[in-house]
Nucleic acid binder design. Structure first.
Lengths: 394, 394
DNA sequence: CCCATTTCGTTGACTAGATGAAGAAAATCG
DNA sequence: CGATTTTCTTCATCTAGTCAACGAAATGGG
């Protein structure tokens, strides 16, 4: 594997240039004048900052494009081919990854099932996946900016270490070290939901707001926070633990050993539990449950639908707490479970409206994003770009 | 009432000068060198910023004080007499206020019961209290910087309006307008718990941390947040609504009409409810309950103690959610109810440890601050100083 | 007692980022 | 073709910051 050239930092480490780059990246081609307005600068300041970015070919400008009267604009856009970036997500059962260009466009994707969750297994799979992905983008090998990794669990991004992951069964696992050693590339690690936050912020529903949460539903309930325009990590990088909000002292046991956590009330297992409690025994996966609830009218369908409604109501109560506490502009529901939003959405919204203060709920849009797809890994790639460009850009 | 001179803003509006002022104010007399270190500057930069602050007499320096070898330092301190500030809290039943100097030292205090909570009643009481307080500091009338007001409920600080207050029964009440008209002074309004956050940040347990929450216990449960070094207000200034976190779907009715809110489980009424459920009928105020629980050994005392333990456990569950979600460095328990911390504290801590992730709980100190006393109103005064100095200073 | 040492603070030359005003560039409109 | 409009650049200037050198004011050792 080639050594990683990381020439970006010294050139664009200055705050303003980083903001220019990020703005051009995320809000598309822009003229200098538009850019100045958006950044609260005067056009001449933009002009002054640009030369190094253009000379080093991070940004390019189009030919003049006339639009009515006046001198035509030259639009700035990022040069997507300056670098490629690898992003991946390590989850239970599989490692999935993408290669993107500098505009975070996905060039190739791949995934690899892992037999067990031991750190060695997962990390060697991640290294193999990185190699494989970079071979698919053959001319890219000498232009790799770095590898971004999203890990479900508590991550210390500065150290590149996963502190604790219930889902993976990890405690104090160094992720960046082994992966950097195996690939020879710069490695950035963060919580997997945080990678989604960055992706939503740059390309998704978080584009136009500066305070939002991404809540992932699936086997577990995850949460990442963007507060006041920047990713909120907390004291030791483990903020966003919404899944174990204690919502019901009489609730079912949670995998964490406590009772009535949001995750126990609204995770996949809660759906299955409700269905089994309803007397249906041959429904063992969440896919079964969705199929049942969307299937032909039957007693079983009624039970399954009621199960999703229960789960939606619990989720809504949790979101109400989040909404009341942080007075967010938006909550984005994502994760594998979001595909079933037709089943749990109405009950969730109803519980949210019932439990959130009306002012807070009015200010807070709910956005359901069922097509997370590559977004996890793409977000991990964004993380690398974001770091290279300077964390200041949010 | 005299017109308010507000000469500060133009002079010190620059970020760095504001930070210098705030640092000198909060961490006491400092030499230029110490100041530079603390602000991450070089001493000459401090020297260059000082002249306007000294000329306009916001800061002063002591005579040289030798300390061992070398040239003696001249310590900078704020000139407390440059202005006076009025701070007050409008709560149900009474308006209380203080006059402070520029170092937020309390010069005089007063409170005034109000017969009802109608806005006119409360605001005219506030205006009267302001006049009264300023008469107690006679030579101060021409040096008033402004009036800060803390109101329990949802406040829009920019508009100076209380949007909604359950405790006061207010909906869309303009506070700043009438009070400015009546007093002729600049008026700053904020949520009452936010005033506590500022006070704790400047003078209290929040001095050495940059992410903490102040949770007030009493008739209601309030919460203010300092995240990443600055007061977190949320999208529309109503963040920090912890009291209505839904913690128990089978819990008692809350005054907000929902079931099982933290406030219904851990507010004063919850204590009384538990005691009455225990068969004791002549305990109608929280003071009675505290006296009972601290009194002579008896069956009633056992019931009262159990009531506080129940409430503490509920509070601990709520704090665990807060701690997990935001991974704070510190949670400060304040408010009138905090005096009973000997009664609810152990159960609270136990529930917190049981429900918070151990990593998050380890990073999060609990600080109980039972002597809030003037702190509400003093915090409101800080709010005015903070605004005059520039919100940038956190 | 005087001079080296130490610490504090100031001065002045210099740099980087931002601004505003004026002007050059490149289109359309009449 | 000239007037107008819009975009972008150039240049003088401002502000906040740094660095390096120096001045100030104490202690302590010979």
């Amino acid at each position: 594997m080639s050594p990683a050239p990381i020439p970006f930092s010294d050139l664009v480490s200055e705050q303003t240039r980083a903001e220019i780059f990020a703005t051009v990246l995320t809000v598309g081609p822009l003229s200098r004048t538009q850019l100045a307005q958006r950044l609260g600068l005067v056009p001449s300041s933009v002009t002054r900052m640009l030369p190094p970015l253009l000379e080093h070919d991070y940004l390019r400008e189009t030919d003049a494009v006339p639009q009515g009267r006046g001198r035509p604009q030259k639009l700035l856009h990022v040069n997507p081919d300056k670098h490629v970036v690898v992003g991946m997500k390590i989850g239970p059962g599989q490692v999935s990854g993408v290669v993107t260009d500098m505009a975070a466009n996905v060039l190739a994707r791949a995934e690899q099932p892992i037999a067990d969750c031991r750190p060695e297994t997962a990390l060697s799979a991640a290294a193999a996946l990185t190699s494989g992905l970079l071979e698919e983008a053959p001319q890219a090998a000498d232009r790799v900016l770095g590898v971004g990794v999203g890990v479900s669990g508590h991550v210390d991004p500065a150290a590149g270490v996963c502190r604790y992951s219930a889902l993976l069964g990890w405690t104090k696992v160094d992720v960046a070290g082994p992966l950097a050693a195996a690939t020879g590339l710069m490695v950035t690690v963060n919580n997997d939901v945080n990678t989604l936050v960055v992706a939503e912020r740059w390309f998704g529903a978080g584009r136009d707001v500066d305070s939002f949460a991404v809540v992932t539903v699936g086997p577990g309930i995850g949460c990442g926070l963007q507060l006041g325009g920047s990713l909120y990590a907390g004291t030791s990088g483990m903020a966003g633990e919404l899944g174990h909000l204690p919502l019901d002292p009489a609730g079912p046991m949670c995998s964490c050993g406590r009772r009535g956590c949001l995750e126990a009330l609204a995770g996949d297992r809660a759906v299955l539990r409700h269905i089994q409690d309803g007397g249906i025994t041959d429904c063992t996966t969440i896919a079964d449950a969705i199929a049942l609830a969307r299937g032909e009218h039957s007693a079983a369908r009624t039970v399954a639908r009621a199960a999703f409604a229960e789960v939606g109501a619990a989720l809504g109560r949790g979101l109400a707490g989040l909404c009341n506490l942080l007075n967010l502009q938006k909550i984005i529901i994502a994760g594998e479970g979001a595909v079933a939003h037709d089943l749990f959405g109405p009950a969730m919204q109803q519980a949210l409206d019932a439990h959130a203060f009306s002012d807070a709920a009015r200010d807070c849009q709910i956005h359901i994003d069922p097509v997370t797809h590559d977004l996890w890994a793409r977000g991990a790639a964004c993380l690398v770009i974001r770091e290279a460009v300077g964390a200041a850009i949010s």
